[in-house]
């Protein structure tokens, strides 16, 4: 067996070299799977995992069900949001389970190139905003209005923010208008990027432990709210189209129903797996339950998914029918 496999591999490599040399026909590198995918020859699905825990929870549960109830082999790839669209269009990834709204990519890949198909709602509504810890609101009740932020700027000063107040942002890959907002609302604040969400969470936990004030870019649903209660700072209200020009933006972030997207070919011919992923739909509470197990109880995503699946058969049975 070993020899046989090795020989086929050698033949494959040889064939590749030969075809490379002779140059017969076209080679479309956009239709190319990862060399590590589906190594054991089973039916396989590749899911994109984004770096935040909520997305890990989606993928963990989908992976568990695909593997244990439908008999697929699941590979996961961590890709940032925008490159994930590219990978999805090329078929290097079969599905994105939680997208926070990328209108440019949607137009390019879903409408123009038709290489990506919509997969329906995830069932969770996402919202981005500026947050302060609730213990701070108790001391300064008027801090939750953006017009009063300048008054408290000195509270938020740190080594990285210079003389201004610090507005902490997370990963460079997240959707954010904060720099433009600070600029356009003429706030005495400096946006400081923590570089990753984890770094941001570490920092927030550290602040919260010492009951220090902080102002941060944050989003819900997010498990950290259970650990560090936070209150949103009201920005000028969101109206349709007020975020059309990203440089001139002066309004809050919208409430976004999170979307699933599938590779177009996979959506058509992906069989049971594609049908299952299209039906996959749960609530904010469900997602948070799994996220908390992963992020706070330090369960592995697989174990967390198993625990949730065992205790919520009524929810996932619907996805398989």
């Amino acid at each position: 067996m070993t020899k046989l496999k090795r020989r086929t591999a050698l033949i494959a490599a040889g064939a590749a070299t030969v075809s490379l040399l002779t140059g017969c026909g076209a080679a479309d590198m956009t239709k190319q799977a990862s060399p590590f995918a589906g190594a054991q020859g089973a039916n396989s699905v590749t899911l994109s995992v984004q770096s935040w825990v909520g997305a890990q929870a989606n993928v963990a549960v989908a992976q568990y069900l695909l593997e244990h109830k439908l008999g697929y082999r699941v590979d996961t790839v961590q890709v940032d949001e925008v490159p994930a669209w590219d990978a999805l269009s090329q078929g290097r990834v079969d599905a994105i389970l939680e997208d926070w709204g990328h209108p440019d990519q949607e137009k390019r890949y879903v409408e123009d190139k038709k290489t990506i198909a919509r997969g329906g709602d995830l069932g969770v509504t996402g919202h981005i905003g500026w947050f302060v810890p609730t213990y701070l609101v108790e001391q300064h009740p008027d801090i939750t209005d953006w017009r009063n932020l300048d008054k408290y700027a000195s509270l938020f000063r740190t080594a990285e923010s210079g003389g201004k107040g610090q507005l902490m942002d997370g990963s460079p890959s997240y959707v954010t208008n904060d720099k433009a907002l600070v600029n356009n609302l003429k706030l005495n604040y400096q946006v400081v990027f923590a570089g990753s969400e984890a770094a941001q969470i570490t920092q927030m936990k550290q602040f919260a432990k010492e009951k220090k004030p902080f102002l941060t870019y944050w989003y819900s649903p997010q498990w950290l709210f259970q650990k560090v209660p936070m209150t949103e700072v009201k920005l000028p209200p969101y109206k349709d189209g007020c975020d059309a020009d990203a440089a001139k933006i002066t309004c809050a972030y919208p409430h976004t129903p999170l979307q699933k997207y599938l590779n177009a070919d996979f959506a058509k011919s992906g069989g049971k797996a594609a049908a299952f992923l299209k039906k996959f739909r749960w609530t904010t509470e469900d997602q948070n339950e799994v996220s908390l197990m992963i992020a706070d109880q330090k369960l592995s995503p697989q174990d967390a998914a198993k625990k949730w699946v065992d205790s919520h058969p009524d929810v996932w049975k619907r996805w398989l029918s």
Binding site: A12, A16, L20, A26, A27, M29, Q32, F36
Partner: peptide
Amino acid sequence: YFFGYVSNAVVLCVRAVYLTLLA
């Protein structure tokens, strides 16, 4: 006709080595 082949050759080679190692 060019980058596609380069890319395919890389993927095939890596896959061949990977499968050999797994085997």
